[in-house]
Computed example of a mutant assay.
Amino acid sequence: MKSLVTGATGFLGSAVMRCLLTAGHEVRVLVRPGSNRKNLENFQVEITEGDLLDHESLKRAVSGCDNLFHVAADYRLWVPDPQTMHEINVTGTQALIIAAAEAGLKRIIYTSSVATLGLNSDGLPADEETSANLATINGYYKRSKYQAEQIVKKLTDDHRLPLTIVNPSTPIGPGDVRPTPTGRIVVDTLMGRMPAYVNTGLNIAHVDDIAYGHLLAYQHGKPGERYILGGDNMMLLQILQTIDAINQVPVNRIRMPVNLMLPMAWCMEKIATFTHTEPRATLDSVQMAKKLMFFSSAKAQRELGYQYRPAIEALKDAIRWFKENGYCK
């Protein structure tokens, strides 16, 4: 049983790769030339070089495989050129799914995101039926993932593909080499760079639990269905205070009104256009902070047997990994 994993050099993709290896899958990984391969070290995987924008490399990658776990995505809250993100997340996804379908793969698991779902105005956790539309979604990343999921759904319906969609929430844990925007929150908190907070909320899950949810979706997921893979709903202040407690460094923080953050984020984005570094706050991320991004994994628990550990365990593992790998110097 050979499974192709995209995004295995990244955070969630590497966790999916490890999970599949533990489950006895033979794993091939699609890797861009020159990418950081730290997360592949010491794992027995077959490496094939390619790119989501190179359609011929996608055909070579799926050839001889039984399954596809498409985890790769351009996950950034700010990009100097949004078209590049669109091409990777939307056009590249479409090309890969078509290549997998033409190759006759038995199972396809597509990693979408809770970013494609709507949010409830009363703060109650959203589920797979909470609708969204492109006009109400903030940010290039969220819009690209929404568009990609719509294309994947249409391909699945039109061609009756053996494809299941999973919608991870916010993964936390070891192996966040870049790190991701959420991983930067953990590192910045450890480094004393989070003196203020906004009154928002996130759904936090251990990256290994989300990865195992991919395996469960492969084993039990229904074609054409989507499943939220999440964890605990937590206010941002609660997350920061939990990190402080684990780190044994209490911090007094001030609550920052969201609207006061907007001009600061605007300035950070303008500076980023000259420095070419991702800003710590963006206009889109501040706009998102106006709502509680809470989600329910009840469907995945009921239909897949999905379970998740307490969020504090995810934060402990992330903190340990960041410290051991020199991110907190």
Score class of each variant (00 low, 15 high):
S3G: 13
S3R: 02
L4V: 03
L4R: 07
G7R: 06
A15D: 09
M17W: 09
V27W: 01
Q44F: 15
D51E: 08
H55K: 12
E56L: 14
S57V: 06
A61W: 00
C65D: 11
F69P: 04
M85P: 11
N89A: 02
T91Y: 13
T91I: 13
A99K: 09
A100M: 02
G104N: 06
Y110E: 12
T111P: 07
S112F: 08
S112Y: 08
V114S: 00
A115K: 13
A115D: 15
T116E: 08
N120G: 01
G123Y: 08
T130N: 13
A132E: 03
G139D: 13
G139F: 07
G139M: 06
Y140W: 13
S144Q: 08
Q147D: 15
Q150G: 13
L155R: 04
D158H: 08
P162R: 11
P168E: 14
P174Y: 04
D176T: 03
P181V: 00
I185H: 14
L190G: 07
L202T: 12
A205R: 06
D209K: 00
I210N: 09
Y218H: 15
P223D: 14
Y227E: 00
Y227P: 00
G231P: 01
M235W: 11
Q238V: 02
T242Q: 14
I243N: 07
Q248K: 12
R253L: 14
I254N: 12
P263A: 03
A265M: 05
A265C: 07
C267G: 10
M268H: 05
E269M: 05
I271P: 05
A272I: 09
T273Q: 10
T277V: 10
R280L: 15
T282A: 15
L283W: 09
S285I: 10
V286G: 05
A289F: 03
F295T: 01
K299D: 03
Q301K: 14
Q307A: 14
Y308H: 13
A314E: 00
K316F: 01
I319E: 06
